[in-house]
Simulated scan of single mutants.
Amino acid sequence: MWALLDKLASTPAPDNYRAALPATGDSATARLHGWTTLPYDTPLPAEARRLLPRLRELEEAWPALAHHGDRVIHGDLRADNMVTDHQRGIVFVDWAHATHGPAAVDAVSLAAQLTLAGHQPHDVARTLRGHHSLATDPLPGLAFLAALTGHWQRNATQPAPPGAPGLRPYQQHAATAGLTLLAHLLQDDAPGLGRRGPDGADSGQ
């Protein structure tokens, strides 16, 4: 999976792809949020409450950061959007959310799904931290993960929609997985995962 993702994210999106599909910054992906709009008295896990100021800061940064990058973005990487072809190996399918933008979007989406599936968060975080889409500039990936996790957390508090009784429990599990992954990525203010300074450079804090 990671090898295919690396191939997808290693070169700029072709001109005809960019002409046919929206930029990530102009899509619904850029509008994902939750931490900044949750009522103050919303019950939250202790880890979410501890990280809430940073989660809100990252989420607020995401819409602008979504305009960065020119890579092919699948936008919904998870197990049921991957099939195994006898000749080509793993193939990504269902490109309904495809855009072009920051390569970190797909890397983070895959990492969140791996954590949700039961893989050890510290192992997933280590792989994600070393992925080329985050290694040089981790901020877009962190901001997207914060926004995605906030989206899951906020939606998990809403009434279940008709005909989908399992949706809210899934979103709560997904929010827990995303939050656990974020906690590992932000642990001890790891070098390279800090805030950007006024000039846009990562401050390492």
Rank of each mutant, 00 (worst) to 15 (best):
N16D: 15
D26A: 14
H74Q: 13
L142Y: 07
Y40H: 06
A107Q: 12
T84A: 08
R129L: 13
R78V: 09
V93E: 09
A64S: 15
A48Q: 02
L21Q: 14
L114M: 13
A143M: 10
D6R: 14
G130D: 14
S133D: 08
A117S: 15
K7W: 00
A125V: 09
R49H: 01
T127P: 09
F92Q: 13
T36M: 03
R88K: 07
L38K: 02
A96V: 12
A23S: 11
W35A: 04
L142A: 12
H100L: 07
H74E: 09
V93T: 11
S133P: 05
L8G: 13
A13W: 01
P138G: 08
H33Y: 02
P121H: 01
L51Y: 00
L114E: 09
A46S: 06
A20E: 12
L55R: 00
D137Q: 01
P12Y: 07
A96C: 04
L21S: 06
L55W: 03
E59L: 06
A19Q: 15
L51S: 01
A111Q: 02
A66L: 07
A19T: 13
A79Q: 08
S133K: 02
L110G: 03
A3C: 04
H67E: 10
A143G: 07
V72R: 11
H122W: 11
T11V: 15
S109Y: 04
G118N: 14
T29C: 14
T84W: 12
F92R: 03
D6V: 03
P45Y: 05
T84L: 11
R78G: 10
P102R: 06
A147W: 04
P63L: 05
E59W: 01
H86F: 03
A61M: 15
Y17T: 05
A30F: 12
D6I: 00
A96I: 02
